[in-house]
Simulated assay, not measured.
Amino acid sequence: MTTRRTDHATASVSRFAQALETAAGPAALSPSSHNCQPWGLGRATSAAARRAAADLTGTDADEYLVLALDRERELTALAAHAVEMEVSCGIYGRILLRGLAAQGWTAAAVRVLDDDGGPGVASGTAGGHPLGAGWPPAWTPLCVVALRPGPPSGERPADLHETALARRTHRGPYGRKPVAPGLLHVLEESGTPGAETPPVHVRHLTERRDLRAFAAFVARYAGRDFGHRAAWRETHSYLRRDTADAAARGDGFTLEQLFGPMSRPRRAAMRLALAPTTMHLLGKAGYHRVLAAGLADLVRRTPAVVTMGFAGQTPARAERLEGGARLADYWWRATRCGLSLHPISIVIQHDDLRGRLERELSLPGRTFFVSRVGVAGSPAPRSHRRADAAVHVSC
């Protein structure tokens, strides 16, 4: 493989750099637990990295991108976070590739790297990394994508960015009007037809008995995370003092995002009550059950709940990334249709609770996403992003 470029090739590289910058904007607005943003993006530009990427994908392409998990930003308090973080990266990757496809850059090949529980290192490579030296040491590479110029997908980059800005997690009350069955059917359709990975199971709970059963489950068990010292300590570390603090840090969430507008005295009281030490003491008096009951009440008054699950109980990395891609398409369509989502991850982040939920609601496979779906009664505050959220690393 040669590294010498003609004027035409140089112009192509410049066009790709511009396209990547445009596509990275909406992708950086992808959702993630606690707004932790655990993804990293690399572009293979050196001769060694391009040769390695070509070998991995089996494709001689114009450009190569590497989707990675940034271990310095991942959640680790619970075992279930390992799957959840890669699903988040899959969401980011899907939105990024849609943005590139809209500008005429087509994914010619995708190679998902092995997920043996290690740092993603391939033996016998320069620098102990499957793509050679120079990559951030905290990054676990998840997949390599080979891209070539092609016809634009038909989506407008401006529309993608507009939808990304409109997509927010709405934790407040939703209207009680049922979501049209036809619309739910559209949301259930796969955004990646013909995918080689096993299907992602999507199910909507709309019958009153199912919604009541799920709300009762939330009331019984959603307090688990509030009482789990390590999990709550990690969650609380992402609670920002106010909007200015969230904007400065570029991640996490505020009390207003969780509970809506509040007075200064109430904000101070809530900050004290949610502090890990205080929460541990209040838990002895059942405060975590009060919080769970409040969440259950929101679920009870929601017109629909969506669940997504992998085909098997031990999804491989390719399935986790595909699950993220499917979730990205679902949330995207829902936003375009005026619907909002509020993930209820707290009931599936402990294996015993997840298994019990799957049995009680007859959910197939391994559930990896549960969320309220409906029309929000008021706008939600936006989540802030890191200053370098749309930046990629070149090696």
Rank of each mutant, 00 (worst) to 15 (best):
L96M: 11
M262W: 04
V373R: 13
T367C: 12
A273V: 12
E196N: 04
A101E: 08
R372W: 08
A296H: 12
H81I: 06
R317L: 07
R15N: 05
G132H: 00
H384K: 09
P136Q: 03
R382A: 10
L147A: 04
D159K: 13
G355Q: 14
L56F: 03
R71Q: 06
G323V: 13
S340P: 15
D159P: 06
P364I: 11
R301S: 13
R264W: 08
A318T: 08
A216D: 11
A318I: 03
L56C: 00
A77C: 13
L69G: 05
R94T: 10
V179Q: 07
D225I: 12
A268E: 03
L75Y: 14
A28N: 08
V186W: 04
M1S: 02
A79Y: 09
A48N: 02
A387Y: 05
R50A: 00
D242H: 07
A122C: 00
T106A: 03
H236N: 09
C337T: 12
G128V: 03
V375E: 07
G99E: 09
L282T: 13
A376D: 09
D245L: 07
R43T: 01
V186G: 02
R51Q: 01
F16A: 02
I346R: 15
R111K: 06
E358P: 10
T22L: 11
E189D: 01
L274I: 07
R51V: 02
T243M: 01
A311C: 07
S14W: 07
R203P: 04
V112E: 02
R241T: 06
A273M: 13
L100E: 06
V13R: 11
L147D: 02
L321T: 12
P181G: 01
P261C: 03
A28H: 10
A387V: 08
C36T: 15
Q313Y: 11
G182D: 04
R148M: 01
T140R: 14
G93A: 15
A292T: 12
T22N: 08
T367P: 08
H384L: 00
T314W: 05
L211Q: 05
T307M: 04
A231C: 11
M308Y: 10
R51S: 02
T254R: 09
E84R: 15
Y221M: 00
A376S: 15
L67I: 11
G93Y: 08
T277L: 09
A247Q: 13
T45P: 00
A269T: 09
A54K: 00
W105T: 04
P26H: 13
L281N: 07
D388E: 09
A219K: 13
P181R: 03
H392D: 01
R94C: 08
H228L: 04
A216G: 03
A48R: 04
S237N: 10
L205S: 04
S394L: 00
W331G: 06
A390F: 07
R336G: 03
S32G: 06
L274V: 06
A230M: 08
R50Y: 00
W135R: 01
L291S: 09
T302Q: 10
V375R: 15
S123D: 02
P198L: 01
A269D: 02
R224E: 08
A268N: 03
L97V: 07
A230F: 10
G25H: 14
T76A: 14
E84Q: 15
L75H: 15
A222T: 05
G338A: 10
W332I: 05
L353R: 15
S30G: 11
L183S: 01
L183N: 03
G118E: 01
